[in-house]
Simulated assay, not measured.
Amino acid sequence: MIAAIDLKAGMTFEQGNKLIKVLEANHHKPGKGNTVMRMKLKDVRSGAVTDTTMRPDEKVKKAHIDTKDVQYLYSQDDIAFFMDLETFEQYEIPTSIIEDELKYMLENMEIKIQFYGTEVIGVTLPGTVVLKVVETQPSIKGATVTGSGKPATMETGLVVNVPDFIKQDEYLEVNTQEGTYVKRASK
């Protein structure tokens, strides 16, 4: 059992027959009343996202999640295909479960797949990935890093706000947790 105050983004717990993933968890002290934990939670199986509050001392049962190293192969007909790097066994995950993560994944990329018992429940991405800019506004002469930035569409369809000096066809390092530009990268 784990107290609600100890829940962090990315953790998974059981609630009845549901498997719940914490997307956001914030400690909140209103002007009057008791301290609460404001959380954004996602039902792993249905994909439903809810905002809720819990008392900090409220207990939940932490789910035991295992991971395996896999290679992302491709997506077809609303299914993403992965291959175990040791046994070469293939796994299929509905794209609806991992649609946010797919924006950071390229074919043949190595990631971790998450299991709850024998059930495949999602993927774990590396902290950053290198993606190519396929569309952005032309760079502005004299632009600096401190500019407000501009949107850039990456090869996976992800749109990231980048500095004004970034050009089309450049490779960028992108933070997978926040979806933000980190730096230029070499391919």
Rank of each mutant, 00 (worst) to 15 (best):
H64G: 08
D57E: 13
M105K: 04
E14R: 12
F165M: 12
G10T: 02
T153A: 00
K150C: 00
V145I: 05
T118R: 12
E173D: 04
Y116M: 08
T87L: 14
K21E: 14
D100N: 09
Q177L: 07
A48Q: 09
E24Y: 06
T118Y: 09
S46W: 07
K32V: 06
K103M: 14
N34A: 11
A4T: 04
K21C: 07
G122Q: 08
T50Q: 10
K18W: 05
T146Q: 11
E173R: 12
I140H: 01
G10N: 03
T118E: 08
G16E: 14
M105Y: 01
I2P: 04
V70P: 01
D100F: 00
I79E: 14
N26F: 06
V159T: 13
T153Y: 06
D6L: 10
T146G: 01
K141V: 03
I65W: 00
G47I: 15
Q177E: 11
A4D: 01
T50D: 10
Q137F: 02
Q90I: 14
T95V: 15
L131Q: 07
F165N: 09
F88Q: 10
F88R: 09
V44A: 12
N108G: 00
V120F: 08
V133N: 03
F13K: 02
K18S: 14
I111V: 15
K8V: 14
T176W: 05
T153C: 01
V134D: 01
L19W: 08
K29L: 13
E24D: 09
R38Q: 10
H64C: 02
I79F: 11
A185C: 08
E107G: 02
I93Y: 10
N175T: 04
A48E: 12
S148D: 13
P30N: 08
D78K: 10
P138V: 07
I111R: 01
V44P: 09
G147D: 15
Q15F: 08
G147Q: 06
I79C: 06
I5W: 07
Y74Q: 02
M154N: 05
A80E: 11
M109K: 00
Q168K: 15
D6N: 11
A63P: 01
E178R: 09
G127D: 15
V182R: 03
L73R: 09
F13I: 02
P30W: 07
D69V: 06
N108M: 03
A80W: 07
I97V: 11
T67F: 05
V129C: 03
I5F: 11
K21V: 05
